[in-house]
Design a protein around this nucleic acid. Structure first.
Lengths: 130, 130
DNA sequence: CGCCTTGTTGATAATGATTGTCAATCCGGT
DNA sequence: ACCGGATTGACAATCATTATCAACAAGGCG
């Protein structure tokens, strides 16, 4: 049976507060600063579940896992600022088709794909120039 | 000054023997089995350098870094078998353009991207069915 | 060829993220 | 309120990777 705990809700909420991908460690630290007594292991476990559910997106960077709240039930990708982490969900219709085709051409079945675009957001670009 | 050591060459060669992405640990183990006395730290260091040079490609999976020899000087992506790891280099011209465009639309500059396609290779699909 | 400078190596310790453990706790149906 | 089992959290354990640092060796030079 699946239960509702304030911890799960707290993680969901904390995650939703950030436009950027966050690590479990960072999220835990932030929650603690805000007074929550939640445990680190719980944050890890909850984030993993959210990612399974499709409520959160997972990104691997420098050997650490970063999470971000996402609009559930949709297939989307991300445009991520290299500097500040600001993230925008993007559609990638043409890429989906391309991926399927390339897979088929090489005799691969059940294709899935990882597509992420990185760059400097307008704000960070301005700051870097100024 | 940059020196040539048998270790660097040994790693390059061992890496070239595999069609699949390999972890530093795995590569080191394989080399040891084949009688090489090379050290683990050296394998890590060398792989990192090869990746910098563009001689090797890097892939992050489950929080571990996987390497693979690649044709240097070309920008390419990968089609990877989920089961056996068999990997094929693929071109992604349409995707490059798409990535640039999406980045620009959102005010992002200096775009780069991560694009990988996963699937089941013909052989693994056959084995799974049989 | 032998020397010297310095990049490189490798055993080991250190780090850092993540997962396992397990008793105490809490959710929610009865 | 009660009970069973899911969930929690402090802590230990694990695992990949990186830092240390003394010993080694590549290659330029005389």
């Amino acid at each position: 049976m699946k239960r509702n705990t304030w911890q799960r809700e707290a993680v969901r909420e904390a995650l939703g507060e950030s436009e950027a991908f966050v690590s479990a460690q960072a999220l835990h630290a932030r929650m603690r600063e805000e007074g929550s007594p939640i445990g680190l292991a719980t944050v890890y476990r909850t984030l993993a579940k959210l990612a399974e559910d499709g409520t959160a997106d997972l990104l691997q960077q420098d050997g650490e896992q970063l999470y971000r709240a996402c609009t559930p039930g949709t297939h989307h990708h991300h445009l991520i600022c290299r500097r500040c982490g600001l993230t925008v969900e993007i559609e990638a219709k043409p890429v989906e088709a391309w991926a399927r085709q390339v897979a088929a051409e090489h005799g691969f079945t059940e294709p899935s794909h990882v597509v992420d675009v990185f760059g400097l957001c307008a704000e960070c670009a301005a700051r870097a120039a100024g």
